[in-house]
Design a protein around this nucleic acid. Sequence first.
DNA 1: GTCTATATGGAGATAGAC
DNA 2: GTCTATCTCCATATAGAC
Lengths: 222, 222
Amino acid sequence: MSENESKEQKEKDMKIEKGNNTEEKILASAKRIFFQKGLKGARMQEIADDAEVNKAMLHYYFRSKERLFEKVFQDSIANVTPRVTEVFLEESVSFQVKIGRLVGLLVDLFAEEPFLSNFFANELARNPDKIFDLVLDIEGGAIGQIIPILNQQILEAIEVGKVKSTIRPAELMLNIFSLCLLPMLSKGLVQRTLGIDDNHMDRFMQKRKRTVTQFVLDAIRP
Amino acid sequence: MSENESKEQKEKDMKIEKGNNTEEKILASAKRIFFQKGLKGARMQEIADDAEVNKAMLHYYFRSKERLFEKVFQDSIANVTPRVTEVFLEESVSFQVKIGRLVGLLVDLFAEEPFLSNFFANELARNPDKIFDLVLDIEGGAIGQIIPILNQQILEAIEVGKVKSTIRPAELMLNIFSLCLLPMLSKGLVQRTLGIDDNHMDRFMQKRKRTVTQFVLDAIRP
DNA sequence: GTCTATATGGAGATAGAC
DNA sequence: GTCTATCTCCATATAGAC
């Protein structure tokens, strides 16, 4: 009895830490390694070591490196999109505030997962067609819904005079995404160029939530 | 006589096309392949094929893949930095116009060399320390001079009330670079997401020179 | 499901003739 | 300087015992 309870408790703790079963452990490690080193740079052995499982297990669960990669990629996208959608579907929040929340969300996201930005930039630029297909393949095209939603809300904001009429929706989205992603991408270089330590850099990035928001709001103000 | 002339003419033509000697041909091809596929993704054989030379030649001239890559990287940086410096050292041009020229220069640069942006983003995020050292190693630290120059000019513009006092130089540089680079990085995906053809995309990017400039100028206006 | 051992192929790099 | 042939290593992937 108490032995059983203790065992269950242990498994629960493990689940919080790095997944309760082999498959989840592999996915967690694959995510980390692929994010850091990219598809070509990552080694199956390294992923296996990180996950503390046998290398053969990777093939047992995911068949091939390519498939494992695709799974990791899709999971990542699927994790982000609902959070973005949520921000913009909330009623009774001004467009300006939504922009601020979107920026905060994106900055935090790329800060929490330092290599997610690499991941996007890399594979996205490498073969966009494949990425496009992978993205479309995610749970009923969740990401496909975001574009029209953002598009409509920007147009509405322009309509009621809250946003400059020369702003085009696609460009605004692109600009916001650029301002949030690239700094994380070049974090290491920026840090060394400015000659600041980790603490300063973290604060620099945190401040960017406000400054980028302000930058964008100033740029779109009529 | 006329035979010699014809031979020289032929060599001259080749030089324009892809370099007159093996070394230059290799560099040109290596640049293209590395830009597209990154350090790990590129194959020495592919570079050799593209350059129409024997694979052994790559090692003869550049010793190893790693060294070839570093050479390509340094050449690329060394090619960009003087053009940026030039914009900001020109006297009797307003700060606003300089911003416009910088944006135009960067957009064109990333448009002309579609994979330069990948290259930056990839290797830069991958191991910033190494990239930093490589950059410093270029012809007397040309890039090291740009940061202080930009820094000073932004501060001066703030001083005379042409730029918002809350703007911080490092962030402004980062923002401009982000707005110019990332869209090219995600060009393929953007194109497919918006469902537009190559012609439209090219025009979209050309227009961005003006819209990004406007975006930035609006954002920094006091 | 999990392990060990191994097959298989492909990559960077070099030797050595010309 | 340029070529062919080859070495060596290592990564993905699988076979097969447990």
